[in-house]
Simulated assay, not measured.
Amino acid sequence: MYKIYFQHLNKKIPLTKVEEELIKSHLAFKKLRKKQYLLQEGDECKYTAFVEKGVLRSYSVDGNGGEHIVQFAIEGWFISDLYSLFSGEPAIYNIDAIEDAELVLISKSANDALLQQCPKYQTLMLEIITNAYIALQRRLNAIPHLTVEERYQKFIQQYPAIAKRVPQHMIASYLGITPETLSRVRRRITNGK
């Protein structure tokens, strides 16, 4: 329990045993079964989750029932509805498990306490949030500037572990295309090689 979480943190900034114990005292552990929700749209998001095992996705559902995936999270990644977490407003995303999952949860109040009590934790969170913002900015920039084929190839190159574990229709949703379009793209790429 918490093994991957602390490996992840210690890669960024080495923690002392005392700092690890302080952080651990603010964490909770949760298991999700495949298709089980961590968060449903409309509920208040109370945690940021770190994935120890499994795959999760964050998505919204449009008026026609279409899913729009905004994030996948595998081992070593964080996932949350940050707007809801920090504002207290209802969540705009659903988060559920694509595979059985084991999660490390940290509440907003625990996060706030650690930011005050542990300077290294503050540095870690700043780095994590900065990296997430950069990834989001790159993704938003790719949408109008890359072809569908280029976006798919970039996804496969950047996230090979996700591509192997997530159904194709979910990759299509993440890319903002239909599963049929993704099938045509994959066929063109395969035939072009």
Rank of each mutant, 00 (worst) to 15 (best):
V104S: 14
Q7S: 12
N141W: 08
H145Q: 08
Y159L: 06
V104Y: 09
T130N: 15
P144I: 04
S80M: 02
K24F: 03
E75H: 05
K3T: 15
F86E: 14
S173Q: 06
Y159P: 09
S107R: 13
H145Y: 12
P144A: 00
C45R: 13
D100N: 14
G192W: 00
S84F: 04
K164S: 15
L175W: 06
L32S: 01
P14M: 03
H68E: 06
I129L: 09
E150Y: 02
P90V: 05
H68K: 09
D100W: 12
L85P: 06
H68V: 02
Q153W: 01
M125N: 09
G192A: 10
Q40S: 04
S25Y: 01
R186V: 01
Q116K: 14
Q40A: 01
W77N: 10
R184D: 08
T178P: 01
A161V: 07
F72G: 11
Q117R: 06
E102T: 04
A110R: 01
L115S: 12
T147W: 00
R139L: 02
K30M: 14
L105M: 09
G54C: 12
D112P: 06
I74K: 15
L103A: 03
P179C: 04
A49Y: 07
L115K: 10
I177L: 15
V18K: 08
R33P: 02
E44L: 04
A161N: 10
L82R: 02
S84Y: 08
I4H: 09
N10R: 11
A110W: 00
Y83R: 13
R151S: 04
D81M: 07
I156R: 11
V166N: 11
S173N: 02
E180M: 13
Q168M: 10
T147Q: 04
S84I: 00
K34L: 01
I79N: 11
Q116T: 14
E127L: 12
Q153V: 00
V166M: 11
Y5C: 11
Y133T: 12
A101N: 09
K193P: 05
L115M: 13
S183Q: 12
I143E: 05
S84K: 04
P144E: 03
K17I: 02
T123D: 14
T178A: 00
V18D: 10
L22T: 07
K120Y: 10
V70R: 10
F78C: 09
L115V: 06
S84Q: 05
L9C: 14
Q137T: 06
I74Q: 15
R139W: 03
L124I: 08
H68D: 11
I4M: 06
H68T: 13
E75L: 15
R184W: 05
C118P: 03
L136S: 12
S107A: 05
L126D: 13
S173T: 03
Q36F: 05
